[in-house]
């Protein structure tokens, strides 16, 4: 199969079906939510997940802006141009054949003219070990993206300061990003690098030092499902850190709604 078709198929599936771990966390939340209003919202979400699976309709009408991180193996000999082409064509075909809403405008300030293709995607590139090309995609809805934010905190603020910054961002988001949320946290680097890491974090695996403490804290602030109050405000968080300057501690948070839609496409040597 051509690389662009592999990308297209993964993207069409991703707007209709959540990753298994995400679905599992939602079901668990619906079973244990303490507030009645929160349970009503979570049950509607569960019903929506079944309805999307049954009909093939997108989970949400905001099918998002394509965000792609191309992780290119240092031993790969694929020209970047070919990767860019495959990503753009794959995204274009997914929008067309998968009934994506066309949500992208050309000029952000003045004309705001719709590109009518849901293109261009936002693409970043990085080098990793190996000879494969791995493409990580987020389908970034903007109800939640409008609540994503960044704080440049004091370098001596430590773990407590980082958690305060994340909590401040989540509190300001409140019910707006369709909670329960999923958080990507990027710490370190420069301002822009921390923001990038907060997106890359959605593809990082496993735990980080203060995860349990952070989730406990965030789930006690009673935003709850749909912002109607309850014991589930943030279902999961992931974090990536990088070196930074002696004078700074950048902390960025990308907020995803409960429909934490993403996919990764692995292209082995010879597949692209």
């Amino acid at each position: 199969m051509k690389a662009e078709d592999k990308i297209k198929n993964a993207l069409i599936k991703a707007i209709r079906k959540l990753p298994d771990d995400v679905e599992h966390l939602i079901i668990e939340a619906a079973d244990s939510e303490e507030s009645e209003a929160g349970r009503i919202v979570l049950n509607a979400i569960k019903e929506n997940i079944s309805e999307a699976a049954r009909t093939g309709l997108p989970l949400c009408q905001d099918t998002g802006m394509f965000w792609c991180l191309a992780s290119v193996g240092r031993s790969s000999d694929v020209p970047l141009q070919r990767i860019e082409d495959a990503v753009i064509r794959g995204c274009g075909k997914a929008a067309e054949e998968g009934y994506y809403r066309r949500s992208v405008v050309e000029d952000p300030v003045y004309s705001r003219k719709n590109t009518r293709t849901n293109l261009p995607p936002v693409i970043s590139y990085e080098l990793v070990d190996g000879d494969a090309v791995v493409l990580h995609f987020l389908l970034k809805g903007f109800g939640s993206e409008n609540c994503s934010s960044l704080r440049m905190i004091n370098p001596t603020a430590g773990e407590e300061g980082v958690m305060d910054a994340v909590e401040d961002i989540v509190r300001k988001a409140g019910g707006k990003p369709c909670p329960p949320m999923f958080l990507g946290i990027g710490i370190g680097g420069t301002m822009d690098r921390a923001a990038f890491l907060s997106k890359k974090a959605f593809f990082a695996d496993g735990d980080f030092a203060f995860k349990d403490k952070l989730l406990k804290r965030l789930n006690s602030i009673d935003i709850g499902p749909g912002g109607l109050g309850g014991s589930h405000t943030v279902l999961d968080a992931s974090c990536v850190t990088e070196p930074t300057h002696i004078a700074g501690l950048p902390v960025a948070v990308t907020i995803n709604c409960w429909a934490d839609r993403k996919c990764s496409v692995v292209l082995e040597k010879g597949e692209i």
């Binding site: 309805e51 949400c60 749909g226």
Partner: peptide
């Protein structure tokens, strides 16, 4: 009235 955010397939039905 608040509709349930993100439940696009449910409302379509």
């Amino acid at each position: 009235l608040q509709a349930y955010g993100g439940c696009g397939a449910l409302y379509s039905s």
